[in-house]
Design a protein around this nucleic acid. Sequence first.
DNA 1: CTCGCGTTGGACCGATGGTCCAATCTGACG
DNA 2: CGTCAGATTGGACCATCGGTCCAACGCGAG
Lengths: 218, 218
Amino acid sequence: MTVTSARAPRRRDALSRQRIVEAAIELLDADGESGLTVRALTSRLSTGRGAIYHHVAGVDDLLAAAADDVIRAATERTADGTDPTTAIRDLSLAIFDALDAHPWVGTQLAREPLQPAVLRIWKSIAVQLQGLGIDGSARSDAGAALASYIFGSAAQFAAGARRSSDEAKRQNYLDALASAWTERDDDQVVRDAASHLRDHDDRKQFMAGIDIFLKGIT
Amino acid sequence: MTVTSARAPRRRDALSRQRIVEAAIELLDADGESGLTVRALTSRLSTGRGAIYHHVAGVDDLLAAAADDVIRAATERTADGTDPTTAIRDLSLAIFDALDAHPWVGTQLAREPLQPAVLRIWKSIAVQLQGLGIDGSARSDAGAALASYIFGSAAQFAAGARRSSDEAKRQNYLDALASAWTERDDDQVVRDAASHLRDHDDRKQFMAGIDIFLKGIT
DNA sequence: CTCGCGTTGGACCGATGGTCCAATCTGACG
DNA sequence: CGTCAGATTGGACCATCGGTCCAACGCGAG
């Protein structure tokens, strides 16, 4: 038997799925994936756990919804009217920047193909490929390839961005990565790759990949 | 105060990092990522938690080591002597098959660029690109692109393979995915993609992507 | 005014990863 | 052959997590 004395008064500003998703994004941006816990949410929204589960299926659902929010914002920015190739490059850049600002999205995208954020990216790409006159299974192959490339890059860059709040830390991270690699395998090829790692630019490299792809489908 | 009565006798067959990694792979293959818990390991190896932490830094370390084990086996199979293009295709296929057999590796690869398995893949690609006469930053761009594509595909296909122990389940999954997509966004482009989803072949699609990249590189 | 039902708060449960330390064994050395 | 220090092992312990459950609450329809 539990004696509940003086229960806290009911909140006046109604909870909603959207409010919860926004709070989740703030938590994720602040502390990364591990920062999103139902407990942290209850504290930030000053409510109880039941209230949250009433609006949201669980943590996985919430992560997917948060990622979708970010990706929606990124893909909506794309201007139409431009030619498909530039549109694809713009779209890719917009996604890259969104992932750079919210590193946890990268990891999340690579985890579950059923989620809305993935569909959103898929569709934006497919529309442009259609504009390029690519159809049938060629379109689905090209779309899948481009999407996979974006997801893979996302996950890799995310790990870097997570650690690079400022430029000095970023350099430290790249140096550590480079020496970890050469230390583990001191091959000429590895040393070569490591040396390029030190002064490489994620954004440029990402776009170089997009261009390779675009060249491959035309 | 703890009264320890009749402690279990010490094991005769020594524990080792390798033995633990092997047990971890078995657990992962059987129950997926969530199946790998320190407790499950202690039970399977009939030991205590301390013994495991003595050989292994933690669950993350173990996951990375397990993935490296699988990737090592896959990349070692690659025959040399063939021309770089076929070598890249062979290598990609070997990795794909390994991921198909151990779906959890796909998710793991997309999570952390410092891990040995990633370096291994990177290096195998870089060696072949060198053979193609690609050097300098072009090589690092191409290598990064190809590796990212592989990681992204890995994660996406992994989610499918996880659910497709047999062909019927696999079809169910694809159907569910297709209708989830069209239900959420009934656009012509989406319907089109969904229809190709139903009878698509992961392996073929993956190789189609590799070929697009190869074409873009040369 | 009242009363049903959509909300809400929080106690509770089982499980996890990691730490810690005492008990145990092994092999080197006297 | 004895002994003892260091490597190895077992498991109690802790904080924390996701998810379930239910009693209390109050808004709005009647």
